[in-house]
């Protein structure tokens, strides 16, 4: 039996976790969610900061709480809701976006840290009338069921193929002194940071292989 030492904050946190209120809280912006959970802190919080984000070729000036993750800024402030919040811990890959040509998990970086960088989200890759080849391939090969992980999968896959083209090695690259190869084994290893709860992996693999010009 562990010591029971209740404090109001801990009680609220624990209640939030067990009752699912945390899940509800995640649907509103992070800053607002916190003010609901911790009203006493609201008056002592540091001031918001001015940030200029460059997303999908457009610049956006905004005042934000420094705590705001890039993911929350994209979704809640810019209303680019294609990028999804899965685990919010960098484990699932649903929030993957491309920054300066590299895929990253947008939940594990602050929006203020991304000023001056080129951010590309799923909305910036293609549109319903002008699909990116990877988007078209996911549709053709049925590379999803519920679709929640799909924007992250597609952003990840697009940047991943560039990594292979650039000769970046992976865990399964047999010879580090030679350029890495476009193979299914490479794609599987390199996509391990994107989890698909529906298990559409084999179709995702086919979509990626088609775009890469690799036979399955």
């Amino acid at each position: 039996m562990t010591e029971f030492n209740p404090s109001r904050r801990k009680f609220i946190q624990n209640t939030a976790v067990t009752s699912g209120a945390l899940i509800a809280a995640k649907l509103v912006p992070e800053v607002e969610a916190k003010s609901v959970l911790q009203p006493a802190q609201a008056t002592t919080e540091p001031a918001n900061v001015n940030v200029l984000l460059k997303v999908n070729g457009s610049e956006h000036q905004m005042m934000i709480d420094p705590r705001t993750s890039l993911l929350d800024a994209l979704r809640e402030r810019l209303h680019l809701t294609g990028t999804k919040k899965g685990c919010d811990q960098g484990q699932c890959g649903a929030c993957t976006v491309i920054v300066d040509g590299r895929r990253i998990t947008s939940c594990l970086t602050l929006a203020v840290m991304q000023e001056g960088h080129d951010i590309t989200t799923i909305e910036g890759l293609g549109t319903p009338t002008n699909l990116h080849p990877m988007q078209a391939a996911f549709i053709k090969h049925d590379g999803y069921q519920c679709g929640f992980c799909t924007p992250g999968q597609i952003c990840s896959a697009v940047a991943m193929l560039e990594e292979v083209k650039a000769g970046m090695p992976s865990h399964v690259t047999a010879d580090l002194t030679r350029p890495s190869e476009m193979t299914i084994i490479e794609f599987r290893e390199r996509m391990s940071g994107n989890i698909c709860r529906c298990g559409a992996y084999s179709n995702i693999q086919e979509a990626i292989a088609e775009v890469a010009g690799v036979r399955t």
Partner: peptide, 29 residues
């Protein structure tokens, strides 16, 4: 670091260790 040509050639154990860790997204950050 994992992709650096000197590291791959002379300190391959370091490349291998890096590539065995985390995910592509996290290694980029």
């Amino acid at each position: 670091l994992a992709a650096n040509e000197y590291v791959r050639r002379d300190y391959a154990v370091l490349s291998r260790a890096l590539l065995a860790g985390a995910s592509g997204q996290l290694r980029n950050q």
